[in-house]
Design a protein around this nucleic acid. Structure first.
Lengths: 207, 207, 207, 207
DNA sequence: TATGAATGAGTTTTCATTCAT
DNA sequence: GATGAATGAAAACTCATTCAT
C-alpha cells in the first residue's frame, strides 16, 4: 500500500528484466549443450530454441543472430572458467606447489564432471583463428591463466620451493601446454588420463 | 601395330584409372585445403568442386557423398603422417634421445611449413568422438605413434641412455600429450612455440 | 473543489480522448513518412511504432491491423488535399483563368515543399485497383477535383474568358491528366518541371 | 555422321543454352505478370517459381537473388518498349504529325491490349528514386523517348507542319507528361481515356 | 493505455544430391 | 566420365499479431 506507482513500475521492470535474463540464459545454455553434443558444425537455431522450449522467433527476439548467440556462449564459457570449481577449494595457506597441484586436480575434476566445458572450449579454440569475435575472448582467457601460473612460479622460486633456474614465463607456457594437451587428448580419445602420474613428472620439473 | 585391340583397351583402361585417381586426389586435396581454411563447419561441396576445377556432379560421380569424401581426407591425412617429413632425415645410427629430439623437430618443422596438417587433424580429432567413421582411423594413428615412442623409450632404457624407472607406456602418453598440447596451442593461438626449450625440459625428464 | 466527481471524470475522459487522438495521429504520420521514404513495399509496423516512439503492441491497441492504419493514412491524405496550401491564397475576385493558374501553382508549390504528399498518393494510386478500401477514397478525391475544375471551366466559358467550344468534362480530364503526368514525372525522375511553360501551353488551349 | 565430336558438343551446348534462356525467360515473365497482378509489395519468389512451374531452388539457380530477378524484369520491360507494337505500323512516308499521332495511338493500343506493361512500368517508376539499379534503366528509357519526340518536332518545324515557335526540348517534355498522365490515370482509375480527343488538343498545340 | 515478451506462418536463400544428356 | 540443370529439405531470419501484466 505504501508503494508509489513509480516504485511498482520499477518492481515490475525488475521482475521482467530477471525473466528476460533467465530466458537468455536458458537459450545460451541450450546452445552450449548442443555445441558440446553435436559440435558447432551441426548447431541449429531450431534445435537451440526447441531445447530451450521456445519458438525460433523468440530466440531471435533475444539474440540478433545465431552468431550473436554463439558470442554469448563464449562469454558464458569465460565466466565459468573465471570461477574455480566448488569441489577443489584452495587451501588457506597453500604452498606454490600445492596451488599447482590444485590447478591440475581441478582440471581433472572438471574433465570428469563437466567434460562439455572443454569440448566447447576446444570448438571455440579451433574456430578462434577464423573468428575475430572469439579470438580476443580466448586470448584474454589464456593470458589470465598464464599470469596466474607465472605468479605461482615466481612465488615458488622466491620461497625456495621451486628450482631457482625456472623462467616463470616459459614455465607457465609449458604447464599450459601440458594441460591443453591433456584435456584435448582426453576429450578426443575419451580415455581418462592419469593426472597423478602427470603431476609426478611435473613435480620433477619444478621442484 | 602389333598390339591387339584388347591390349590397347587395357592401356586405355589403365590411363583412365590413373586419370580417375588424379581426379579423386585433386578433390580430396581441395577438401583438405578448405577444411584447413574454413573448418568443417563451413565446408561446402560446391566450394570443393570449384577449387578442384570440376562440376559438383563430378564430385558425386567420384564420391558417393560428402561424408565419403571427408573419409578420404582422413585417409589422406593418415597417409601423410605415416611418412616422415623430408627435411628431418633420421640419422642412420641415431641414439634413442636423438630420435625423440628428431620427432619433436619434425613436428616443429611441419607446424611451421604445413600448419594445415594439424588444423585439419584437430578438426577431425574434435569430431571423432561423434563420428564412428573417423574415430578408428585416428585411434590407429595414435596407437602407431604411441608404439613408436614406446619402442624408443624401451631402447633408451636398455641402452642406459634414459632413466631406468621410466614406464614406456606412460612416458609415451606424456610425450604425446605435450606434443598435442604444443600443436593445439600453436594452431589456436597462432603463436610459434619454443621447441628448443620444450626439448630441454623433456630431456630433464628422460635422461 | 466545486467540481463533482462525474465532471472530473468527464474532464479526464476528454483529456484521454485527446491524448488518444494524438497517439493515433502520430502513428498515422509516422506511417505516412515511412511510406514516402521506403514505399508500401518496405513499410513495417515495427518501424512505424519506433518512429512514433511507441511499442508495437501500442500500435495494435490503436489500430486493429496494419491495413487499418494504412486506411487512416489514406484518410489523412484526403484531408490534406481537401485544404489548399497556405502559400497560394485564392484571390478574392479571381477570374477563372486566375483560378486555373492558381491550381497549377499550388501543385507546383506542394511538389516543391512536400513532395512526399505526391509520392504517397502515387503509391496509393497504384495500389488502388487492387485494394477495395483505397479505391473509393481516391475516386472521391478525383471526382471532387474534376468537379472543381468543371465549375471553373463552365464559369470561364460563361464569362467569355475561355474558348466557347470547350467541353467542361473533357477539359477537366485533360487538365487532370497533365497535372498527374507532371507530378508523376517529377517524383519519379526527381527533375523539377517548368510549370510556367506548362501554363503557357494550357493557356493557349483554354483561352 | 559427318559431324565431329566437337561439333556435336557445340550443338549440345547451344541447345542447353537455349533451354537455359527459356527457363530464365519464363521466370522473368512469371515475375513480370505477378508484379502486374499483385504489385512489387506482394511479389513472392515462391509464387514466381510456382507460376513458372519450377522449384524455388531452380529460381535461385538461374538468378542470384530476388533483386537480381527483378532487375531482369526491368531489362525485359526496356526491351519490350524498344520495339513498337505490331499493330500500329509506322507509315512509310509519314509526316511528323502522323508520327506523333501514331505514337499516341500505339500507346493507346498497348494500354488496351497489355495494360500490365504500364502497371509494371509505374511500379518501377515509383521505386526508381529509391533503387540505384532501376533508376538508370528508366532514365535511359525516358531519354530515348525524349530524343525520339524531339527529332519529330524538329522535323515538323523544318517542314513547316508544326508551329515555328516550338521548342523541341520542352515540347517533348510536355508530350511525355501528357502521355505519362494518361497512362497513370488509366491504370489507376481503370477508366479508358478518349485518346482521340486528347490528340485533337495536342494538334491545336503543335500545328 | 501501454508494454515486453512471445509466436505461427512465412520469407528468402542454401545445400547436398540427383537426373538427363 | 563429365556436366548443366533441377530439386527436396532445411537453413537463418522476419513480420504482423497476440498475450500477460
Amino acid at each position: 500500500m505504501y508503494e508509489t506507482h513509480k516504485e511498482q513500475d520499477k518492481q515490475k521492470g525488475r521482475t521482467r528484466a530477471i525473466q528476460n535474463d533467465e530466458r537468455r540464459r536458458s537459450l545460451v545454455l541450450a546452445a552450449y549443450q548442443l555445441i558440446a553434443e553435436k559440435g558447432l558444425e551441426h548447431l541449429r537455431t531450431r534445435d537451440i530454441a526447441a531445447r530451450a522450449g521456445v519458438n525460433i522467433a523468440t530466440l531471435h527476439y533475444h539474440f540478433a543472430s545465431k552468431e550473436d548467440l554463439i558470442g554469448s556462449v563464449v562469454d558464458y564459457l569465460l565466466q565459468v572458467f573465471s570461477t574455480p570449481p566448488p569441489s577443489i577449494p584452495e587451501p588457506a595457506h597453500a604452498t606454490p606447489w600445492d596451488r599447482i597441484r590444485s590447478m591440475f586436480l581441478s582440471i581433472e575434476y572438471r574433465l570428469r564432471v563437466t567434460p562439455e566445458l572443454y569440448i566447447v572450449l576446444s570448438e571455440f579454440g579451433l574456430r578462434s583463428p577464423r573468428s575475430p569475435s572469439i579470438q580476443p575472448a580466448l586470448k584474454k582467457l589464456d593470458e589470465g591463466w598464464s599470469s596466474y601460473i607465472r605468479q605461482i612460479v615466481t612465488d615458488g622460486i622466491q620461497q625456495g620451493q621451486f628450482r631457482a633456474d625456472l623462467d616463470p614465463e616459459s614455465t607457465a607456457k609449458a604447464l599450459m601446454i601440458v594441460l591443453k594437451g591433456a584435456t584435448y587428448h582426453q576429450i578426443t580419445s575419451g580415455e581418462a588420463l592419469d593426472f597423478a602420474h602427470l603431476l609426478k613428472e611435473v613435480e620433477r620439473l619444478l621442484l
